[in-house]
Design a protein around this nucleic acid. Structure first.
Lengths: 200, 200
DNA sequence: TGCATTTCTTATCCTAGATCAATGCCTAAA
DNA sequence: TTTAGGCATTGATCTAGGATAAGAAATGCA
């Protein structure tokens, strides 16, 4: 059931301070899966029971509003974890969809995994707390950008922060993340090109 | 040094599961202060060392952008805690200002207080974790509103969520929180009145 | 290789909300 | 009881970005 998962192993060891033996014990009965592009992992209204660690590929979470428009909340490439924390923690229906932007291999991480890892590793506890706080910092920054920055500034911030994502997802998804239309993003890019802006 | 603090006491006992004796022990050497309207508790660029529990009054946190405009992040009335979590946790300069919208009596809560309370009370640990997760849920919802909702929808959400704040702060502050100008908010309200909307 | 589906761009027009400016509040200080 | 500094409202005008529509360019798939 558990395939090689080199990314997960490296991630837990180098970032979360998990040792070789701890890794073996922890990942004994983890479930792994692969979905095709467009495959859905979580639907709005469902209770989210897992975090998804991206071993290979690209996932996204998004909401759909009353008028049917998608609003992308997060992207997750290799070595990222995506989920709906609130749905998991409060055991309530999720506002989000999570689906695959690319064919993706991922690992199901449930609360039991987190508890077990926290139990056997102080380093993991610290890592986990740090991840939580980092999440808050990130959300806070995004709110501030939405309140204070223009579409262009938000786009520049995005490509600086997520150069890899920028190259791997269609532009309309970036536009959705930024809170603008694909047409507007196209114009922003045109304007930047005119001013001879070179991201790479 | 520690005055009566009926709100803090009631808050810790009823919400955080702290007993009478624990309360006495914990609040032994807490610092309390009162500031006048407009008084500043935290400046952008400073490292935030405390959370502020509002015993009586009203505080707010906000950023100031490059063009000098304020963007309100949060309001805190009685029994709310306000701070810059990221600055505290990562020990890095804050992006926020925190100041008093009304004359305010508040309590300084530092990390030591949190640790001590967590040590002596399992209920407090759970409460604290829940508060953190709630914070994330709240930020997430706000991002979603900024991405998906009109100024009017955001305003209606605000007055439903914070009826007390709505009545106690000037409208331009609500506008700032919503990410619009005071003029726009005035027009939104006029439009709502025309459609015979009654908040109270 | 060739057709079909996405995606991206461009153009035109439109609208929510911004900006600027003037007026009339209140309230609090003098 | 003035007067001055916030604050809210209103009107006129402007603009960033939205909506719509139509090509152009990629991309994927047969």
């Amino acid at each position: 059931m558990t395939a090689a998962l080199p990314n997960l192993k490296n991630y837990l060891q180098s970032k979360a301070g998990i040792t070789e033996e701890q890794f073996e014990a922890l990942t004994q009965n983890l479930k792994t899966a692969t979905i095709e592009k467009g495959g859905i992992l979580l639907q709005q209204g469902e209770i989210c029971h897992h975090s998804f660690f991206v071993e290979q590929g690209l996932l996204r979470s998004y909401t759909i509003d009353d008028s049917g428009k998608e609003h992308i909340i997060q992207f997750a490439t290799e070595n990222w974890i995506i989920s709906d924390r609130s749905s998991i923690f409060f055991n309530e229906p999720s506002d989000f969809f999570i689906d695959a932007v690319e064919p993706t291999t991922f690992v199901y991480l449930d609360q039991q995994f987190i508890h077990k890892a926290s139990e056997i590793s102080a380093a993991f506890r610290i890592f986990n707390e740090k991840a939580l706080q980092n999440h808050i910092r990130h959300l806070q920054k995004r709110i501030n950008l939405l309140l204070a920055a223009t579409a262009e500034q938000r786009y520049l911030d995005f490509i600086k922060l997520y150069p890899d994502v920028t190259l791997r997802v269609p532009q309309w998804m970036i536009a959705s993340y930024l809170g603008i239309t694909p047409e507007s993003l196209s114009r922003v890019r045109k304007e930047l090109a005119k001013r001879n802006f070179k991201p790479y």
